[in-house]
């Protein structure tokens, strides 16, 4: 395991913890897209089925389990415990626009036509677009709480670090995974605009609001 991979995992975990802490402390999920969080729960569920078929390491098993738990607890807080604070009105991204193409693509473009492989591919494609409902919500309301932007920053950082991981593995092991790399590039591009706003506004102490 290389430094980019481990830092990527840490960023990913940190992002999910920031989101949970934000919701728990403020007892509110205002400004958070429940749809994005449901998509992430689907992503982890369809990807980590290998928990039952393969063992890599304690680290791998524990992290997968923690990611799944975080995703499900977040969904529960949004649609269960704090549903009264959920901004259903502005979380209006049409999920079928993501789910239908992603499902179709995972059947068409995969490494081999087996259930686990298709589900893994589906999860990779879905992850690359899962944040779109959240970004859509921010562009609709025109603002985001600072803690929400920290969440997005660490989520984006995780994607960027994973890209570095794939480059590193290609250089050192001559190993690459086309599906993971292409999806990684796509999802990192989605964050570029946000990264720019984060650096120019949030890090200078201003609230993220769109003109």
């Amino acid at each position: 395991m290389n430094i980019f991979r481990i830092l990527g995992d840490v960023s990913h975990l940190l992002a999910m913890i920031i989101l949970l802490v934000k919701i728990w402390r403020s007892k509110s999920c205002a400004g958070i897209s429940g749809k994005s969080q449901v998509l992430f729960a689907i992503v982890f569920t369809s990807r980590y089925l290998d928990l039952f078929t393969n063992f890599f390491s304690i680290y791998n098993t524990v992290m997968k389990f923690v990611f799944l738990m975080c995703a499900y607890i977040t969904v529960y807080l949004i649609y269960g415990k704090f549903r009264k604070t959920f901004d259903n009105e502005n979380d209006s991204f049409r999920l079928e626009f993501l789910l239908i193409p992603v499902t179709g693509l995972s059947f068409l473009e995969n490494q081999s036509f087996t259930p686990l492989e298709i589900l893994w591919t589906f999860s990779i494609y879905l992850e690359s677009v899962a944040i779109l409902p959240q970004l859509f919500m921010i562009s609709k309301t025109g603002e985001a709480e600072t803690i929400t932007t920290h969440y997005l920053f660490f989520l984006g950082l995780y994607h960027a670090l994973y890209l570095a991981n794939w480059i590193w593995r290609y250089q050192t092991e001559n190993y690459y995974d086309q599906i993971a790399v292409v999806s990684g590039v796509v999802q990192t591009i989605f964050y570029c605009d946000f990264f720019y706003l984060y650096v120019t506004k949030v890090l200078k102490g201003k609230k993220l609001s769109l003109p």
Partner: peptide, 10 residues
């Protein structure tokens, strides 16, 4: 490499 899955990556 014919083998694809499993991955150690999360």
């Amino acid at each position: 490499h014919a083998l694809h899955l499993p991955h150690d990556e999360l």
